[in-house]
Design a binder for these strands. Sequence first.
DNA 1: ACCTGAACACCGTTCAAGT
DNA 2: ACCTGAACACCGTTCAAGT
Lengths: 225, 225
Amino acid sequence: MPAAQVSVRRRARGRLSRAGILAAALELVDQDGVGSLTMRRLAGRLDADPMSLYQHFQSKEALLDGLVGTLWSEVEVMDGDWQVVLPSLANGIRRLAHVHPQAFRLVFGRGMLPLPALGPLDRALTALERAGLAREAAAEMVRTLLAYAGGWATLELSCDCGVDPGASQVEQVVAITRALPAETPTHLLEVARLMACCDMDKQFELGLRLILDGLAPRLVDVRGR
Amino acid sequence: MPAAQVSVRRRARGRLSRAGILAAALELVDQDGVGSLTMRRLAGRLDADPMSLYQHFQSKEALLDGLVGTLWSEVEVMDGDWQVVLPSLANGIRRLAHVHPQAFRLVFGRGMLPLPALGPLDRALTALERAGLAREAAAEMVRTLLAYAGGWATLELSCDCGVDPGASQVEQVVAITRALPAETPTHLLEVARLMACCDMDKQFELGLRLILDGLAPRLVDVRGR
DNA sequence: ACCTGAACACCGTTCAAGT
DNA sequence: ACCTGAACACCGTTCAAGT
């Protein structure tokens, strides 16, 4: 078979790959939201037949699972002792929400413990065990941290309803008033402003410190004996 | 117009109500999951034309927002000082996840601060202000608590992949192995078991205590001065 | 053997035609 | 004036017909 013909009129064979499809899907979700991810639209972006996607994914559900894997793989957990590893896991989860605000809901919306999450969680567990903690006690710490980090990232995304971080109080009130129904009582608008407008970095750090400081004594006890 | 005719062949007028539609929608989601909620299927359950639903909700999106309201309205926040109000808010959110495991994802999947959430949050804020805390400091506590409670409830639901609470370790391993892909490395299966299998009540309490105990000193300071 | 497009059974929503 | 069903523009997926 002449090479020229292959390059000029090459078959679709092998043009699509799992990774390529997932990258295009993530781009689509980041741009237009989870609702806009469609097998047909995705195939269109890749100049392929919609049915060709089914050679790489059994169903749309399987494709979404793959997307969760792609997202978890972007969470980098640093090496070091638990004082380094645990905050880096929590910060990695939060950073994921910032980089992919649209796609993030997929990560925790379809179960928090899929296969791709287990690597990062293993790193955290191992760091705590190296520090002398029992496996079950280590799991307790990691679960608490995961719940807080995931919950905060979700909350932070939902606060981001068009209010600039450095906006004046008046601007905040205007933005919140527009985001809620017209019949919302004034004092509940104030509750919403109070809840939604804060220094997100500082607030996240506050909860993180609370949890790590609260759990630290357990470790000291173990080491001391 | 003869009353008999009204009762025998009464018009569809007024047969549908916002509350009735929402109740049927919640029932549908509880039974068959969020994916099965369809304007057509919902109308079928109510023996109505699909388009009749649009008299009460502008769109399916608006109906989902209404569902979030229904769910939040089931969160009861007890009266009392902050030591009572804050745990009751956290427990209420967690209980919601237990009563409506399928529908729960709607509550935090579409923004954590919709109008129906503001009532319960206001109760918590007020309790802290009554205890002498500044508004901004009160908001910090409530945000931390909301992030943890919401995150934990989500994590707990995702752990519930067919593992009985009282299952033996062997049963746990079998259930986890079945829930994850066949090619999952053994040591990651063990990570999953360790993360997913625990006394959920105890674990939730642990994080809750950690946060409330960590925040309590701020209040004592305020009162003491 | 591998690929793919027509076809099926849905979906949310518009809108014109009914009462 | 209020209601509603046919119709439109989608959707995920099956499967038979192609190469």
